[in-house]
Structures are given as structure tokens and as C-alpha cells.
Simulated assay, not measured.
Amino acid sequence: MKFHAKKDMTFRILIWGSVLLFLGLSVGLFIPIYHEAGFAASITFSFIFGIFVIIILWLWYRTFYVVTNEHLIIHIGPFKRRVELNTIKKIEKSNVPLASVALSKERYFLYYNANDYTIIAPENIEKFVEVVNEKRKEPIRFLK
């Protein structure tokens, strides 16, 4: 089952502000740089800022979580992490502002294996935990 990432207003402003900034730089700097540095520099800077726009949008639209029979697959843009469901120890609510696959301030630490963790933020955490528990032999500890 697929769960979309929760996206709050802070991250919407941050992401779309960054997209508009880099898009503006990609287009707006082309003409002034062209006259001063030449055509190659103009194309290079426009290409670099355009790539930033593509990566940011890729992260925004391709962040989601998939629960299969044996794994939790965490997608964030071009990256993918696979966690075996049976190795998940607990899910705990957190407000720590660490960089992660969470696009919301309401985040959850997902502890797995002996000492590994990742930070997630599915839209419906209760349904997420319910689906994960259906696939496991014993339920996960969920600390709200």
C-alpha cells in the first residue's frame, strides 16, 4: 500500500520559494552573464540552476512510502531505502528539525535493526501503523 508524504505549509513555502528562485536565476541570469562572460558561461549557469529546479521538484513529487508484504520502501526523489518490516522496533513522534525524508514538521522516528533509524512523515500515520502491523507477526510500539 502506498502512503504519500505529509506536506505542511512551511515546507510548501520553502520548496516552491526555492523552485521560483532557481528558475528565476536560470532564466534571469542568462542575459547579463552572456554579455559579460560569454555564451558558454551563460549556458552553464542556466543549466546548473535548471538542474536544481528539477531535483527539488523531483523530491517534492516523489516522496512517498510503500508497504509491501515484507518491506517498507521509502522513496524520496531519486533515492530509495528498503527496510524489512520484521526489523522495525518502534515508531515515535518527534519534532526534531533534522534533514530527512519528511516534508512536514510532524515527524516520526522509525527505529529498525539494532541501532538504525529514519525519519518519516506519512499523511495518515495511524493507517500507516495499522497496515504495517497487519503485515507483521507482532505489533510495533507506536509512541504518539
Rank of each mutant, 00 (worst) to 15 (best):
K80F: 12
N86H: 15
E36C: 02
H71W: 11
T44K: 15
T68I: 00
L14G: 05
G28P: 00
S46E: 10
L143S: 08
V53K: 01
K127N: 13
G77A: 02
T44I: 07
R12T: 08
I55P: 00
V67Q: 00
S18M: 10
Y112M: 04
F142A: 06
H75M: 06
E123T: 04
I56G: 02
V67M: 00
I88P: 12
I56K: 01
V101M: 14
F109E: 05
G50Y: 02
I15A: 07
N124E: 09
H4Y: 07
I140R: 08
K144M: 08
T87L: 14
L25T: 04
N115A: 06
D8Q: 07
I74W: 10
G38K: 11
F109D: 05
L29Q: 07
G50Q: 02
F39Y: 09
R141V: 15
V96M: 09
L20N: 12
L72K: 03
L57C: 01
M1G: 10
V101K: 04
K90R: 11
I55E: 00
I48W: 03
N124W: 14
V19L: 10
N115T: 08
L103Q: 11
D116Y: 11
E123I: 06
K6Q: 13
Y108E: 06
I140S: 03
E126Q: 13
D8A: 07
H4G: 15
T44Q: 12
L23I: 06
F22T: 02
I120N: 09
L14H: 06
I91N: 12
I119A: 11
H75W: 15
A41D: 05
V67S: 00
K127L: 12
R62W: 04
W16V: 08
T44V: 06
F22K: 04
N69A: 01
W16A: 07
V83F: 02
F142W: 10
G28N: 00
A99I: 15
V53E: 01
H35V: 01
I31P: 05
Y34L: 04
I56D: 01
F128N: 09
R141M: 15
K137C: 05
P122A: 06
A37D: 03
G77N: 03
S18T: 10
N95K: 05
I140T: 04
S104F: 08
R81K: 13
E123R: 06
F30A: 00
R136A: 04
G17N: 12
I140Y: 04
L29E: 02
R141Y: 11
A99V: 12
Y61E: 09
I140W: 05
N69R: 03
L103K: 06
F64Q: 05
E106P: 03
Y61I: 02
P78W: 13
S18Q: 13
K137H: 15
E123Q: 14
H75K: 11
K144E: 09
F142C: 09
A41Y: 11
F22S: 03
V83M: 10
T63Y: 06
N115R: 13
V19G: 08
T87N: 11
K7Q: 11
R81I: 09
E134N: 12
T63S: 12
L14C: 08
R107Y: 15
I33V: 13
